[in-house]
Design a protein around this nucleic acid. Structure first.
Length: 258
DNA sequence: ATGTCAACCGACGGTTGA
């Protein structure tokens, strides 16, 4: 079995003990982190190596930043999403090859800031991600693209009142781009196994969202066809949100058969 | 709309992004 977890930690330094506890308890083979909010040299790698995990870090000052914690040898294949502008400095993608899989960790742009240009950047990013999926399909790779997609795919994926009607997470163009990605032939792991449950992965810090269960389901794992056939279980670790000083996102784990 | 949080800059509080 292979256990892969994605978790937007909203600062790796603030959440170091949460991540260490999670590694100790859950023992994932790969932990995909988003919004580490630091540069690579600031990443708290030492505490994780003490638990047997090495880190591949694509960092940036203050914002964004992604990392993959792993226990087995890996080969890094990308440190940015192919197709983006050469001078694009946003640290939102890292991809590696390990145990016969290609694992892409992504932090998709939110799209609510920066006006039309900010939203356009999100849509462009989604198009490039689809192109990456097609390239991996052309290579007949077994791959998973997981992370904070900043997309609620369906109305059932957010609590009523948790988002404004025009929010970039639910705009029709956003959903169309997400569906276009799925329609390359990928399996959205959580819905494949839990098609009708009300499930959220994020609760805003504001306005008592956790207490009111005003959540969103925006953290996803998409699987290539053969990996879809190997999907055994998914787990949304909701208990993490009730802990002291939590991230606003909780971990989502995908278990694949060996 | 928000009852929040984290990081930065520049000197403890305002700004930005989520």
């Amino acid at each position: 079995m292979i256990k892969i977890t994605t978790w937007n930690v909203n600062s790796a330094r603030m959440r170091e003990s949460h991540v260490a506890d999670f590694l100790t308890r859950e023992q994932p083979d790969f932990l995909l982190l988003q919004e580490i909010k630091c540069e690579a040299h600031q990443f708290p790698a030492l505490g994780f190596s003490a638990l047997g995990y090495e880190a591949v870090v694509v960092g940036q000052k203050s914002y964004n930043g992604v990392a993959i914690l792993h226990r087995a040898p890996v080969e890094v294949t990308c440190r940015k999403l192919p197709g983006l502008a050469q001078d694009d400095a946003q640290a939102r993608y890292v991809e590696l090859r390990a145990q016969g899989l290609v694992i892409g960790n992504l932090y998709l742009p939110n799209g609510n800031s920066g006006g039309a240009a900010g939203y356009g950047y999100k849509l462009d990013w989604m198009e490039k991600l689809r192109a990456r999926a097609l390239a991996l399909l052309d290579k007949d790779a077994d791959f998973i693209l997981a992370g904070d997609y900043n997309v609620c795919p369906q109305d059932a994926d957010f609590a009523s009142g948790a988002l404004n009607p025009g929010d970039a997470l639910i705009r029709p163009e956003t959903r169309a781009a997400f569906n276009a990605l799925i329609h390359t032939g990928l399996t959205e792991a959580v819905r494949a196994l839990h098609p009708r449950e009300t499930l959220y992965t994020f609760w805003d810090y504001q306005a008592g969202a956790w207490d009111r269960n005003a959540g969103l389901r925006i953290d996803h794992a998409l699987l290539s066809p053969r990996l879809g056939d190997r999907l055994i279980a998914t787990n949304i670790h909701k208990d993490e949100r009730a802990k002291p000083q939590p991230s606003d996102h909780v971990p989502v784990t995908v278990t694949l058969s060996a």
